[in-house]
Design a protein around this nucleic acid. Structure first.
Length: 226
DNA sequence: GCGACAG
DNA sequence: ATCTTGTCGC
Protein backbone atom coordinates (compact mmCIF):
# COMPACT_ATOMS: atom_id res chain seq x y z
CA UNK A 1 0.00 0.00 0.00
CA UNK A 2 1.33 3.42 -0.88
CA UNK A 3 0.75 6.35 1.40
CA UNK A 4 0.47 9.90 0.24
CA UNK A 5 1.18 11.95 3.36
CA UNK A 6 0.92 15.22 1.51
CA UNK A 7 -2.61 14.33 0.54
CA UNK A 8 -3.53 13.21 4.05
CA UNK A 9 -2.07 16.41 5.42
CA UNK A 10 -4.32 18.33 3.06
CA UNK A 11 -7.28 16.32 4.27
CA UNK A 12 -6.45 17.21 7.87
CA UNK A 13 -6.23 20.88 6.97
CA UNK A 14 -9.70 20.65 5.48
CA UNK A 15 -11.05 18.82 8.51
CA UNK A 16 -9.51 21.47 10.75
CA UNK A 17 -11.80 24.09 9.28
CA UNK A 18 -14.87 22.11 10.31
CA UNK A 19 -13.85 21.32 13.84
CA UNK A 20 -16.00 23.13 16.37
CA UNK A 21 -14.32 24.29 19.55
CA UNK A 22 -17.50 25.39 21.26
CA UNK A 23 -20.10 23.56 23.27
CA UNK A 24 -22.56 21.94 20.93
CA UNK A 25 -23.85 19.39 23.38
CA UNK A 26 -27.15 17.56 23.43
CA UNK A 27 -27.21 17.42 27.20
CA UNK A 28 -26.83 19.36 30.41
CA UNK A 29 -26.03 16.31 32.46
CA UNK A 30 -24.90 13.39 30.29
CA UNK A 31 -26.57 10.02 30.71
CA UNK A 32 -23.58 8.15 29.30
CA UNK A 33 -19.94 9.02 28.83
CA UNK A 34 -17.75 6.85 26.65
CA UNK A 35 -14.09 6.07 26.48
CA UNK A 36 -11.84 4.60 23.80
CA UNK A 37 -8.56 2.75 23.64
CA UNK A 38 -6.78 0.91 20.87
CA UNK A 39 -4.36 -1.98 21.03
CA UNK A 40 -2.65 -4.25 18.53
CA UNK A 41 -2.15 -7.94 18.00
CA UNK A 42 0.24 -10.08 16.01
CA UNK A 43 2.95 -7.52 15.89
CA UNK A 44 0.54 -4.83 14.74
CA UNK A 45 -1.23 -6.85 12.07
CA UNK A 46 -4.54 -6.54 13.84
CA UNK A 47 -5.95 -3.35 15.33
CA UNK A 48 -8.15 -3.86 18.36
CA UNK A 49 -10.38 -0.91 19.24
CA UNK A 50 -12.44 -0.75 22.40
CA UNK A 51 -15.23 1.63 23.26
CA UNK A 52 -16.81 1.55 26.69
CA UNK A 53 -19.96 3.27 27.91
CA UNK A 54 -20.25 4.42 31.51
CA UNK A 55 -23.34 5.77 33.20
CA UNK A 56 -23.13 9.25 34.71
CA UNK A 57 -22.68 10.36 37.42
CA UNK A 58 -22.07 6.95 38.94
CA UNK A 59 -19.45 6.09 36.31
CA UNK A 60 -20.35 2.43 36.13
CA UNK A 61 -19.57 0.34 33.07
CA UNK A 62 -22.82 -0.39 31.27
CA UNK A 63 -21.59 -1.59 27.89
CA UNK A 64 -18.45 -2.19 25.89
CA UNK A 65 -17.56 -3.28 22.41
CA UNK A 66 -14.26 -4.43 20.92
CA UNK A 67 -13.71 -4.36 17.16
CA UNK A 68 -10.80 -6.03 15.43
CA UNK A 69 -9.78 -5.04 11.93
CA UNK A 70 -6.73 -5.57 9.82
CA UNK A 71 -4.19 -2.79 10.30
CA UNK A 72 -3.55 -1.01 7.04
CA UNK A 73 -1.70 2.11 8.07
CA UNK A 74 1.56 2.52 10.01
CA UNK A 75 2.07 4.65 13.08
CA UNK A 76 3.26 8.05 12.00
CA UNK A 77 3.23 10.86 14.57
CA UNK A 78 0.59 13.34 13.47
CA UNK A 79 -1.31 10.75 11.45
CA UNK A 80 -2.49 8.42 14.18
CA UNK A 81 -6.14 8.77 13.23
CA UNK A 82 -5.59 7.19 9.83
CA UNK A 83 -4.27 4.12 11.63
CA UNK A 84 -6.86 3.85 14.38
CA UNK A 85 -10.05 5.40 13.04
CA UNK A 86 -11.31 2.39 11.03
CA UNK A 87 -11.41 0.10 14.06
CA UNK A 88 -12.86 2.78 16.30
CA UNK A 89 -15.64 3.50 13.81
CA UNK A 90 -16.47 -0.19 13.68
CA UNK A 91 -16.66 -0.38 17.47
CA UNK A 92 -18.82 2.75 17.55
CA UNK A 93 -21.37 1.22 15.20
CA UNK A 94 -21.63 -1.81 17.43
CA UNK A 95 -22.40 0.23 20.54
CA UNK A 96 -26.13 0.22 21.23
CA UNK A 97 -26.16 2.92 23.90
CA UNK A 98 -24.37 5.77 22.15
CA UNK A 99 -22.63 7.94 24.77
CA UNK A 100 -23.40 11.67 24.91
CA UNK A 101 -19.71 12.45 25.21
CA UNK A 102 -16.63 10.48 24.25
CA UNK A 103 -13.19 10.69 25.88
CA UNK A 104 -10.71 9.60 23.23
CA UNK A 105 -7.23 8.34 23.97
CA UNK A 106 -5.03 10.78 22.12
CA UNK A 107 -4.96 14.44 21.21
CA UNK A 108 -7.90 16.61 20.23
CA UNK A 109 -6.88 19.88 18.60
CA UNK A 110 -3.47 19.81 20.35
CA UNK A 111 -1.99 18.61 17.09
CA UNK A 112 0.32 20.13 14.43
CA UNK A 113 -2.65 20.81 12.15
CA UNK A 114 -5.30 20.93 14.85
CA UNK A 115 -6.76 17.52 14.06
CA UNK A 116 -5.77 14.85 16.56
CA UNK A 117 -7.66 11.56 16.62
CA UNK A 118 -10.26 12.87 19.07
CA UNK A 119 -11.14 15.70 16.70
CA UNK A 120 -11.00 13.47 13.64
CA UNK A 121 -13.34 10.95 15.28
CA UNK A 122 -15.71 13.58 16.62
CA UNK A 123 -15.96 15.30 13.27
CA UNK A 124 -16.61 12.17 11.22
CA UNK A 125 -19.10 10.75 13.70
CA UNK A 126 -20.49 14.16 14.55
CA UNK A 127 -20.30 13.66 18.30
CA UNK A 128 -18.79 15.68 21.18
CA UNK A 129 -15.30 14.38 21.91
CA UNK A 130 -12.44 15.27 24.23
CA UNK A 131 -8.83 14.31 23.68
CA UNK A 132 -7.13 12.71 26.69
CA UNK A 133 -3.48 11.94 25.95
CA UNK A 134 -0.80 10.54 28.19
CA UNK A 135 1.97 12.34 26.36
CA UNK A 136 2.50 15.60 24.56
CA UNK A 137 2.51 15.61 20.79
CA UNK A 138 2.44 19.30 20.11
CA UNK A 139 2.55 22.57 21.99
CA UNK A 140 4.40 24.02 24.92
CA UNK A 141 3.66 24.23 28.60
CA UNK A 142 5.06 24.57 32.08
CA UNK A 143 4.63 21.68 34.47
CA UNK A 144 1.57 21.95 36.66
CA UNK A 145 2.05 21.99 40.42
CA UNK A 146 2.40 18.59 42.10
CA UNK A 147 -0.92 19.10 43.86
CA UNK A 148 -3.65 16.93 42.32
CA UNK A 149 -6.00 18.76 39.93
CA UNK A 150 -3.44 21.49 39.32
CA UNK A 151 -3.27 22.42 35.68
CA UNK A 152 -1.61 24.71 33.18
CA UNK A 153 -2.60 25.78 29.71
CA UNK A 154 -1.08 24.02 26.73
CA UNK A 155 -0.06 26.63 24.19
CA UNK A 156 0.57 26.53 20.47
CA UNK A 157 4.00 26.67 18.89
CA UNK A 158 4.34 30.40 19.43
CA UNK A 159 2.79 30.52 22.85
CA UNK A 160 0.11 32.80 21.47
CA UNK A 161 -2.95 30.63 21.54
CA UNK A 162 -4.21 27.98 23.90
CA UNK A 163 -4.70 24.53 22.41
CA UNK A 164 -5.48 22.55 25.53
CA UNK A 165 -4.55 21.82 29.12
CA UNK A 166 -1.92 19.90 31.07
CA UNK A 167 -3.61 18.34 34.06
CA UNK A 168 -2.05 16.71 37.07
CA UNK A 169 -4.79 14.15 37.57
CA UNK A 170 -3.00 12.33 40.37
CA UNK A 171 -0.19 12.95 42.83
CA UNK A 172 3.23 11.78 41.68
CA UNK A 173 1.98 10.89 38.23
CA UNK A 174 2.83 12.47 34.91
CA UNK A 175 0.17 14.93 33.78
CA UNK A 176 -2.53 14.33 31.20
CA UNK A 177 -2.84 16.39 28.02
CA UNK A 178 -6.42 17.47 27.54
CA UNK A 179 -7.79 19.23 24.49
CA UNK A 180 -11.16 19.77 22.84
CA UNK A 181 -11.90 17.14 20.24
CA UNK A 182 -15.07 18.40 18.57
CA UNK A 183 -18.17 20.31 19.70
CA UNK A 184 -16.62 20.98 23.11
CA UNK A 185 -15.05 24.16 24.54
CA UNK A 186 -11.73 24.30 26.37
CA UNK A 187 -13.41 24.71 29.73
CA UNK A 188 -15.88 21.92 29.12
CA UNK A 189 -13.11 19.58 28.02
CA UNK A 190 -11.24 20.15 31.26
CA UNK A 191 -14.36 20.04 33.41
CA UNK A 192 -15.60 16.70 32.18
CA UNK A 193 -12.26 15.02 32.45
CA UNK A 194 -12.01 16.20 36.04
CA UNK A 195 -15.55 15.01 36.76
CA UNK A 196 -14.59 11.58 35.47
CA UNK A 197 -11.54 11.22 37.71
CA UNK A 198 -11.88 8.78 40.56
CA UNK A 199 -8.53 8.60 42.29
CA UNK A 200 -6.54 7.30 39.35
CA UNK A 201 -4.35 8.98 36.81
CA UNK A 202 -6.80 8.28 33.99
CA UNK A 203 -10.45 9.31 33.96
CA UNK A 204 -12.79 6.34 34.39
CA UNK A 205 -13.96 6.06 30.76
CA UNK A 206 -10.37 5.89 29.55
CA UNK A 207 -9.32 3.60 32.35
CA UNK A 208 -12.10 1.14 31.61
CA UNK A 209 -11.38 1.29 27.91
CA UNK A 210 -7.75 0.47 28.68
CA UNK A 211 -8.86 -2.50 30.72
CA UNK A 212 -11.19 -3.78 28.03
CA UNK A 213 -8.75 -3.24 25.18
CA UNK A 214 -5.91 -5.02 26.93
CA UNK A 215 -5.81 -8.54 28.24
CA UNK A 216 -4.81 -7.83 31.79
CA UNK A 217 -5.99 -8.84 35.24
CA UNK A 218 -8.00 -5.70 35.74
CA UNK A 219 -10.15 -6.66 32.78
CA UNK A 220 -11.77 -9.58 34.54
CA UNK A 221 -12.27 -7.31 37.50
CA UNK A 222 -14.05 -4.88 35.24
CA UNK A 223 -16.33 -7.54 33.82
CA UNK A 224 -17.42 -8.54 37.29
CA UNK A 225 -18.55 -5.03 37.95
CA UNK A 226 -21.20 -5.37 35.25
C1' DG B 1 20.88 18.98 8.86
C1' DC B 2 19.01 17.80 13.70
C1' DG B 3 15.76 16.78 17.17
C1' DA B 4 10.80 15.79 18.37
C1' DC B 5 7.47 12.55 17.86
C1' DA B 6 -0.33 10.90 20.42
C1' DG B 7 -0.62 5.31 20.08
C1' DA C 1 1.48 0.54 20.92
C1' DT C 2 4.14 -4.09 22.13
C1' DC C 3 7.84 -7.37 24.06
C1' DT C 4 8.48 -8.54 29.62
C1' DT C 5 10.48 -9.66 35.88
C1' DG C 6 11.57 -7.84 39.21
C1' DT C 7 11.75 -3.90 41.84
C1' DC C 8 11.87 0.81 43.99
C1' DG C 9 8.86 4.22 46.25
C1' DC C 10 4.73 5.81 48.40
Amino acid sequence: MSINLAQLKQQQLEYAESIIIQDKLDFTIPKFIGGTDVGFENGGEITRAAIVVLSYPDLRLVEYKVAKVKTEFPYIPGYLSFREYPALEEAWQQISQKPDLLLVDGQGIAHPRGVGIASHLGLLLNIPTIGVAKKRLYGQYTDPDSKPLSYEKLWDKHGEQQIGWVLRSKLRCNPLFISPGHRVSYQTALDWVIKCLKGYRLPEPTRFADAVASNKPFFSQVLRGM
